[in-house]
Simulated scan of single mutants.
Amino acid sequence: MGLFKEFRQFMMRGSAIDIGIGVVLGAAVSSFVDSLVRDILLPPIGLVYSRMNIENLHISLSGRTYSSLADAKEAGAITINYGLFISTSIRFVIILFIVFLVVRQMNRWKKPHQHPLDSMTKKECPYCCLSIPNRAVICPNCSSSLEKKQSAESTTYPRLKIK
């Protein structure tokens, strides 16, 4: 009974719902990109390359020549389908770019005042020698006040006094 209770808590937490929504949206984006590549992008590319269908490009390992991939499959020939690989690679790059844009936007929504790379840079506290965020003015480990060294392009932060 403990397993089902734990599963129900997992479902109610929102993680499973987020995953489910992501899978559904991923399938929708995948079918959209699939149609975009097959129906919009590849025909003009094939027209440029002597009126051929990119997805029909193949190498027959039997040594015979076939006019299309469908003819080769019908004859039972073993083929290397590099046209399908090119098409799939284009789809992959487009989907990868869309995922990048979505993640980038979600990071902006989470912390609009902070650049994503700022939180990843670290410095060492001069008092306790532990790693702390680069923009910290008080060490979260030893509570020491940190003063930023003044350089030509930066200004110093005033020391914070804890009462």
Score class of each variant (00 low, 15 high):
L130F: 10
I21C: 05
S89R: 01
D71M: 04
R159V: 09
S143D: 12
T155N: 13
I132Q: 04
G26C: 04
G83A: 08
S87P: 01
R91Y: 06
L42E: 02
A72T: 03
P140D: 08
S30P: 04
I17S: 12
V99D: 05
A77H: 11
G63C: 14
V24G: 02
K149H: 09
R108E: 08
N81V: 10
A136W: 04
S30M: 09
A28V: 09
L3K: 12
C139Y: 03
I45L: 13
H115F: 10
N141A: 07
R104F: 12
S89L: 11
G26D: 05
R38C: 00
Q150E: 05
S60W: 01
A152Q: 13
Y49L: 14
P43G: 03
R64L: 14
V23F: 10
P43S: 03
Q150H: 04
D18P: 00
N81S: 09
N134L: 07
Q114A: 08
R13P: 00
R104M: 12
I17M: 15
I40G: 00
A16F: 14
G22N: 10
Y66Q: 08
A77S: 14
S151F: 02
E6T: 08
N107R: 14
I80A: 15
Q105H: 04
R38P: 00
I94Q: 01
A77R: 07
S131L: 08
I21M: 07
R51Y: 10
K123E: 07
P44G: 06
Y127H: 15
D39H: 06
P112V: 08
G46L: 04
N134S: 14
A70Y: 08
S145V: 07
T79W: 06
R104D: 14
D71C: 02
P44L: 08
P133H: 07
N141T: 13
L42P: 01
Y82D: 10
I162L: 13
G22A: 05
S50A: 12
D118K: 14
Q105P: 00
I21A: 07
Y82E: 06
S151P: 00
L160E: 12
G46V: 05
